[in-house]
């Protein structure tokens, strides 16, 4: 088994002037090349956890803390944020506020300039990052003319240009329409599959997350309450209800069927799986009790 690239040991964090722990006794190990979905209700500590990973906590955001966070062998408490920048890339929720430059090219150059990458290599890396995100055509466009989805892609490309081994995304789709959200999510899947990038995706929309990630971590009131494959997590009725997880409609249907005693198998996460299960229950599509034909 590979050595974890991210190791969080007994990590507890209090924001200044706060009596309640934002994170309490977190233990989490993530291996290189994993694609982890992180979910939970608002205020569960998801954002705090990402800030602990990229070193913003405790380097930039102070507070009381205990425990240790190690990223690629470096303790985040003693490594400056700028050092971590080449290892762990971060993308945030607000497409507007996280961009600093005027044009797409300058935005991608910003991080590379900070890390003193030579000019020729910088050009090559910008070209590559734009290709990875498939926005080569936007290179010389001013950021003010881009849509929210495009801006978010630029933010991802800007992180990718630094060639980090890990990418942490804090609800990158929360301000996007469903179509752009899906594009972003597919993009991340490609990053993970083709470049072996370790990805941690924070996402409230479990229906987007569940079919995508092999591993889902649920946070609730600063604690990890579940860490398993999405299907196993969604199997826990009480947990789903308590956290108010927004689960895929097809999964809801089969949970209802199961509660009624009509279904006993694994919960499907995608419509296609659901259709197969229905066929098995009711006979092939287009016959008898299941007259509608799958497209």
């Amino acid at each position: 088994m590979m050595e974890p690239i991210i190791k969080i040991e007994n990590f507890t964090f209090y924001y200044p002037d706060s009596q309640a722990a934002a994170l309490a006794g977190i233990n989490l190990a993530i291996r290189p090349g994993e694609f982890v979905g992180l979910t939970g209700p608002t205020g569960a500590g998801k954002t705090t956890l990402t800030l602990a990973l990229n070193g913003i906590i405790p380097n930039f955001q102070g507070g009381r803390l205990a425990g240790r966070v190690t990223v690629a062998g470096r303790d985040t408490a003693t490594t400056p944020c700028a050092r971590l920048a080449g290892i762990i890339g971060s993308v945030f929720q607000d497409p507007e506020a996280q961009l600093v430059a005027e044009t797409v090219e300058d935005e991608l150059a910003f991080g590379l300039e900070n890390l003193a990458v030579p000019r020729e290599e910088m050009r090559a890396r910008i070209t590559m990052a734009l290709e990875m995100v498939a926005i080569t055509g936007l290179r010389h466009r001013p950021l003010s003319q881009l849509s929210g989805g495009q801006k978010q892609k630029v933010a991802i490309a800007a992180a990718a240009a630094l060639q980090p081994r890990i990418l942490v995304l804090d609800e990158p789709t929360s301000e996007l329409d469903p179509r752009s959200s899906l594009e972003i999510v597919n993009l991340l899947q490609r990053f993970n599959r083709d470049y072996g990038m370790t990805i941690i995706l924070i996402e409230q929309k479990v229906s987007l997350l569940a079919p995508l990630v092999p591993r889902m971590v649920c946070l609730h009131q600063g604690r990890i309450v579940a860490d398993a494959a999405p299907r196993q997590v969604l199997n826990q009725d009480q947990l789903v209800a308590e956290l108010g997880l927004e689960i895929p409609p097809v999964t809801t249907l089969f949970r209802l069927l199961r509660r009624a005693g009509a279904y006993h198998g694994d919960l499907p996460l995608e419509v296609d799986q659901g259709c197969r299960e229905l066929e098995r229950l009711l006979g092939p599509a287009g016959t008898g009790a299941f007259p509608c034909r799958r497209q």
Partner: peptide, 26 residues
């Protein structure tokens, strides 16, 4: 203020203030 904070965090995570820097343009 919220926006400025987000931007500062975003800049930190992209190595702002790492030391001597280069420039794409001259």
């Amino acid at each position: 203020v919220q926006r400025a904070r987000t931007m500062a965090i975003s800049m930190e995570t992209r190595g702002f203030g790492a030391g001597p820097r280069t420039s794409l343009r001259t």
